[in-house]
């Protein structure tokens, strides 16, 4: 569904992403791991068409994002880091705007999509509240609602549980799990337990390169009995 081949992105003289390749199939929940600054967000921004890669390609459902960015963007639901949204709009206004851009021009269809997204993310109680007045947890959920409003075949989530309390984290995780059945999901995180809880594949990226691409079981088997973060530390110590 999502195919990434040899992606490269350079900022100044720092190579943020250095030849990253992987494939995500429907049903996959790919945990994208790595220390801060390893290139996780940059890779996601290239897949979603926000940044143009210096080299390499990213294709979604067989469409090259560099060739037809709009077609790719309409197939992806993207939750950028820290869930940006237009703060002066209310939750419903914002989701209506997203729905309209996503092509739901008929008011009835749009309302249905918005209501579904509100229900899935438990936002009904704050629907008429301006987004800037919401707490971090609610803002994150608005970002979620926005990403899944059009029921996209691919979800790209940049630190979806960042800043949430343990209960909210649990809720978001079960939400992701419930949506993953026939979708390709990429989520980045630096919380290892999260990967263990929901992902069926792990990619560890360090200094812009993929150092691990395997199942959580295989990852754990690298050092039987050791904690996941010990394995993680061994793999990414080059970044420190």
């Amino acid at each position: 569904m999502i195919e990434v081949k040899g992606l490269v992105k350079t900022y100044g003289n720092k190579r943020a992403v250095d030849g990253v390749s992987f494939t995500v199939r429907p049903g996959d929940i790919l945990g994208f791991l790595g220390p801060n600054g390893a290139g996780k967000s940059t890779t996601m921004k290239m897949i979603t068409g926000y940044l143009r890669p210096d080299a390499g390609t990213a294709t979604v459902a067989g469409i090259d994002v560099a060739k037809d960015p709009v077609a790719v963007k309409s197939r992806i639901g993207y939750l950028p880091e820290s869930a940006p949204a237009y703060g002066e709009m209310t939750v419903v206004e914002f989701l209506n705007f997203i729905g309209e851009v996503r092509g739901f021009r008929a008011a009835a269809t749009r309302r249905e999509k918005v209501e579904r997204a509100l229900a899935l993310t438990h936002l009904e109680s704050v629907r008429r509240q301006a987004i800037e007045t919401l707490s971090k947890g609610y803002k994150q959920r608005v970002g979620f609602a926005q990403a899944l409003l059009h029921e996209p075949p691919c979800l790209v989530l940049d630190e979806p549980t960042d800043g949430l309390d343990p209960n909210q984290k649990n809720e978001v995780r079960s939400l992701i799990k419930s949506m993953a059945a026939d979708r390709a999901v990429i989520l980045s995180t630096h919380i290892l337990e999260e990967v263990d809880a929901i992902c069926n594949r792990i990619i560890v990226i360090s200094s812009g390169k993929v150092v691990v691409d395997e199942t959580p079981d295989a990852f754990r088997a690298r050092k039987p009995g050791a904690r996941l973060d010990a394995i993680f530390r061994d793999l990414t110590s080059a970044d420190a």
Binding site: G49, S74, S82, Q146
Partner: peptide, 14 residues
């Protein structure tokens, strides 16, 4: 400043 530019430019519009 608000980061919404990333949201805007990952929506299906040119």
């Amino acid at each position: 400043r608000g980061g919404t530019i990333e949201l805007l430019f990952t929506l299906p519009l040119t």
